[in-house]
Design a protein around this nucleic acid. Structure first.
Lengths: 301, 301
DNA sequence: CGGAAGTTTGAGGCGCATCAAGTGTGGTGG
DNA sequence: CCACCACACTTGATGCGCCTCAAACTTCCG
């Protein structure tokens, strides 16, 4: 991961002369693309309405290309830009006090990066390209100014940050209450759905990340991830060929859970398992069964 | 938790007649306080600079009092207000599809509630008073309008949301990489620090939440929380008397960790444990030792 | 072609959940 | 006022889910 194969740096960036937020940092060389996007194009990418009365003389936003392995920003780096993924796949990671990586997300097209830097004015996490990427650079100063002009923009930003907050809350809930199988199952279906929203197949796709990165993201070891994928494969829920995933039975995958973690609430779990255990265990091997699923619960009423 | 002892609802709310964001929901009766705060007072509470040129004719913000057990907002409830805690202690929880509670945070004075509702315009979580509370109500419409006037306000909001994002990221990291002991230790020291910032003692304080709620927050069972507290007590790191906690050795508590979860990075862990194991294990019983702490790492160089 | 990195699979062990029983405690009603 | 009950907490016994360690295999890339 951290071994970045830095391509030979041929020339210095001419853009450094501009009073634009300077592009040079130690995260690695970036091949400066010639593409620039208008505010309208950016809004379209993010699926937010273009501000009314926006003029063409509004700022243009620079595209920057990154090769797989390069970092978009690093922890502690001065905050200057927000980033929007235009194409490619990345990961964001936290590095703890002892050098351990914690994967936080796998951003892809239309995702927004860098908002965790607003508070301290320094990036709290690191974003690394998992494939070649095209990223749109939004200078925060420019964004702020635009926000003062177009209230819709500011509103969209609040909305995006709120959504991210909710996503992380769901992550927290998942991390502390789901079994390893359920985590992997959800990971696969969520990834499929995201690919689907981007126009790709939601059934067959390539994992861009290693088992290790998946494990870090889900709070598991890479061995557990590998074993779980193999188990799903044997059960006929998915097909696995290295990083090529085919989702065969998305319904069962989504239903895959574990018993409620404790006596938090209703005490039906025991009844369910007593009534259904032999029946269920006959259906699927091990405890990879979609037990405690809505269907099951409904079937008992 | 979910068994709220709803006080006898004596009369209906007279305030429902106002065109103010209506105070009546099914979350329970609220004793309407007579207190109102100015924008200046709110900014002071949040430790953000009061907008320059702000006039006294700016909106006033209503205080609302809640008794322990009452809900400030519920999941799915229409989003109308942000809330700022003026006094008291609460918890925010997510309820999953099967009724299980997931505690997300324990807000106290100066904390902001409700920002996770901006995205969907419905509250994604539930806020419950753990003690009698005084909460300031900020109608989102009012806030938006003020934000358009005072750019500093909007900036402060972005900052607050970004901070919350970073906090949740740290939570995710902790949930997936720390041992039970380390989680509880961090929980105690963090809580102490927060009390300290509010002017209370950071060494001696009362837990306002049950072991079950702590467990939910940390991704543990209540039994494990209880056992860990007892163990810390026997080791002389803290004192425990029901919910009364005394922190005796904050340094060791903070240093308390676990080995890196895997071969994520540097491979010194083995060397460390080989060199130090007998020495360390002689110092403290079990594996409650502050191993892999900065001090230890430094001691080997 | 060789080495590094990623992946799979197995064997074994430990951390924490689970189940269970008993003790304290605060609130409620007799 | 005390008795009672629901609830919170403690502590022990047991088991299993997932981590850890290890070895072989595959893929990729210089």
């Amino acid at each position: 991961m951290s071994a970045i194969s830095t391509p030979a740096r041929t020339t210095d960036l001419p853009a450094a002369a501009l009073n634009f937020p300077v592009l040079s940092n130690d995260a690695g060389w970036r091949c400066q693309g010639s593409l620039w996007s208008t505010l309208h194009e950016v809004c379209e990418l993010l699926h937010i309405p273009t501000p009314t009365n926006s003029h063409n003389e509004d700022a243009l936003f620079q595209h920057v290309r990154y090769k797989a392995g390069q970092r978009i920003h690093t922890i502690g780096q001065q905050f200057e830009n927000l980033y929007i993924v235009n194409s490619g796949f990345l990961k964001t990671v936290l590095i703890d006090e002892y050098g351990n990586e914690q994967v936080l997300s796998f951003p892809m097209k239309a995702d927004l990066l860098g908002i965790d830097a607003i508070y301290t004015q320094r990036h709290a996490s690191e974003a690394v390209a998992l494939s070649d990427c095209d990223v749109i650079l939004i200078p925060y100063k420019t964004f702020s100014a635009l926000g003062r002009t177009y209230a819709e923009l500011e509103q969209a930003m609040f909305s995006a940050m709120s959504r991210e907050l909710v996503r992380e809350q769901a992550m927290i809930s998942m991390l502390s209450s789901l079994s390893a199988e359920a985590k992997v199952a959800r990971f696969l279906t969520n990834l499929g759905e995201r690919f689907g929203q981007l126009g790709y197949s939601n059934k067959v796709f390539n994992l861009r990340m290693t088992r290790h990165e998946i494990g870090s993201y889900l709070g598991l070891t890479l061995e557990t991830v590998s074993r779980t994928l193999s188990a799903f494969n044997e059960l006929g829920l998915i097909t696995v060929d290295q990083r090529q995933i085919g989702i065969i039975d998305p319904v069962s995958l989504k239903a895959l859970r574990r018993l409620p973690p404790s006596k938090s609430r209703i005490k039906v779990s025991k009844i369910v398992s007593e009534k259904m255990s032999e029946k269920v265990s006959a259906l699927v091997s091990k405890n990879l069964l979609p037990q405690w699923s809505p269907e099951l619960a409904g079937a008992l009423n």
